[in-house]
Design a protein around this nucleic acid. Structure first.
Lengths: 196, 196
DNA sequence: CCACTTTTAGAGTAATTACTCTAATTTAAT
DNA sequence: ATTAAATTAGAGTAATTACTCTAAAAGTGG
């Protein structure tokens, strides 16, 4: 594994465990088994490390919200949401402290805003596809679709933090429970043809 | 205003503006126009200051989720949720970084878990009351009520952070928009008698 | 006015932090 | 093998941090 790689890996693990505030570049260097000098040779500061980690997170996200060729089903949504939770867990430090991190780094903030916008668009396309393929049905001209998507987005992004905050252990089962929250929101709009 | 008071006030403002990580006790003392020594005379460390601020937040919350004597209506829920958003905004630094803060302070975490539990119970009583008073109707034996409440809780607690993260200005109108997200989730369960 | 307690200022400190610098070592190319 | 470039170690630093200490000032009760 390359040095750059080791840095990102070590940093992500430490950030997830302790939060970005408690983890110094010296800690990261130690965990990646290299000197601070070397760490700074590869990344010019802590912000740059965080940005690089965020880039990876978004790279992992890309395939999650691209539309498949074949028709979508409930299972499609289920699988994508599950994968979504896995990624959120892998990089959980980020959404835990997102506002503070973005507040401290204007450049990161602009990047994140761009990424979120395009991801919301993907999701709207996704939702539309579910209507076309007969999985979801919304009342005529309902202005709520966007709101429902936003609500689902917020729930999905903060479910794991919610568990952590309330001292609950997080494991594979937790992802399923998060999914059920999304289903609970969408239940009234599911067509009756299929099951769970 | 007492010294203790000034400290909490100044700290909350700075925390909201810059995040807890960027704000040192020396900054807080300066903002409260006193010496660091004096600050430490009143609070033995930074954690204690955060805890004291959190105590206030929860004190402000108490009346929001107590049941009124008269029958509840949609307006009741509307008003309570609005007040809820006001409080969340006043202490927005906390939910922004909650997981990290609670990770770093076990004592604070236990306190927060207790507070959340009792608040969730309040809200379930609230929901039940809305059914009794004919504002909401859930399908027979639906296991989803708890999930819907959890979803609403997560949306309510993270809506303002969502706005901040995405670079949107936050003002009185934002609270209304957050409310609409909650309504969008609950819409299918609203009885048809009343409007708005 | 006096004794006492509470509150305050402000200088000081040990630890930590992000980051720099220099020099050594490894790698790659010819 | 020689050279140049990329990578690394590790000592060092200036700034900041949370927090302590001492002593002065400001109440307070009798």
């Amino acid at each position: 594994m390359s040095a750059k790689e080791r840095i990102l890996q070590a940093a992500a693990v430490l950030f997830n465990e302790q939060g970005t505030g408690k983890v110094s570049t010296n800690h990261i260097a130690a965990a990646a088994r290299m000197s601070p000098g070397n760490l700074y040779y590869h990344y010019k500061n802590k912000e740059e490390i965080i940005e690089a980690i965020l880039d990876r997170m978004h790279a992992e996200w890309d395939p999650v919200w691209t539309l498949p060729d074949e028709p979508v089903t409930r299972k499609t949504l289920h699988d994508r949401l599950l994968r979504n939770f896995e990624i959120l867990w892998e990089y959980r430090f980020f959404y835990r402290e997102a506002v503070a991190l973005l507040l401290a780094d204007e450049r990161l903030k602009r990047k994140h805003v761009r990424m979120t916008e395009s991801r919301m668009q993907d999701q709207e396309r996704f939702a539309h596809r579910f209507v076309v393929d007969g999985v979801l049905r919304f009342p005529e001209g309902s202005a709520d679709v966007r709101k429902l998507i936003t609500a689902c987005w917020i729930v999905a992004n903060n479910w794991l933090a919610f568990l952590e905050m309330n001292g609950e252990a997080v494991d594979a089962r937790s992802f399923g429970e998060g999914l059920e929250l999304i289903w609970a929101i969408l239940r009234p709009y599911l067509t009756e043809g299929e099951t769970g």
